[in-house]
């Protein structure tokens, strides 16, 4: 069961196997939760959205198109869900929550400080760029897989990621990320 391809598992879920859906949850819950967390910047919301997403995915699996891969389908759903949530959220909340994740975790060394500064910088990116950064570095997708997931052309995926990295660099210079280097 564990070695099975995602789409095989989806096929089994459609034909009544709940255990196959459990495998799919095991495979994607961590990545999706962490992506959600970096999209909505609130742990409880990220938890709720992740769980809702899987319930929604289970209900919609009947309409799954086997021409696509499962990860692109569920990541796209996750991104849309997070973007929708951000859109509905009052804009005033955004600034209050901005650094909350950073302050939650006690830091001990330079590497952890940098890691936290980077997370904050990622959170401050425009959602259009943030989603691509998360797919590339947290979901570990290739450019082609990002293209499949987001529907953004390959050339644009590359250029947007380069722009995002440059935006991060500029933000991190201000945050003192490169001090003591």
């Amino acid at each position: 069961m564990i070695d099975k391809d995602d789409n095989e598992l989806v096929y089994e879920v459609i034909h009544g196997s709940t255990s196959s859906f459990e495998v799919l949850i095991d495979r994607y819950q961590k990545t999706i939760f962490n992506m959600m967390l970096r999209m909505v910047n609130d742990t409880e919301t990220a938890k709720d959205l992740t769980q809702d997403l899987f319930v929604q995915a289970y209900e919609k699996l009947g309409g799954f198109n086997f021409r696509f891969r499962f990860f692109s389908w569920i990541y796209r759903m996750a991104l849309n869900k997070a973007i929708d949530w951000n859109r509905k959220r009052k804009p005033t909340c955004r600034l209050e929550l901005a650094d909350s994740q950073l302050s939650d975790t006690p830091v001990s060394n330079d590497s952890e400080i940098r890691s936290n500064l980077l997370q904050v910088a990622v959170l401050r990116l425009n959602p259009k760029y943030r989603a691509l950064v998360l797919l590339k570095y947290y979901c570990d997708l290739s450019y082609e897989e990002i293209q499949e997931t987001t529907g953004v052309p390959l050339k644009k995926v590359r250029s947007r990621l380069f722009i995002a990295r440059e935006m991060l660099r500029k933000e991190l210079i201000v945050n003192g990320f490169f001090e003591n280097e």
């Binding site: 709940t18 859906f21 949850i25 939760f33 570095y137 990295r165 280097e181």
Partner: peptide
């Protein structure tokens, strides 16, 4: 600077929080 950002981004997966929502979802 870009190399340092890349290094930390690549470590992003390692810093991911472990979760288990399986029970709740089911």
């Amino acid at each position: 600077q870009q190399a340092l950002i890349k290094k930390h981004l690549d470590e992003g997966q390692a810093s991911m929080i472990e979760v288990d929502f399986k029970k709740n979802i089911l």
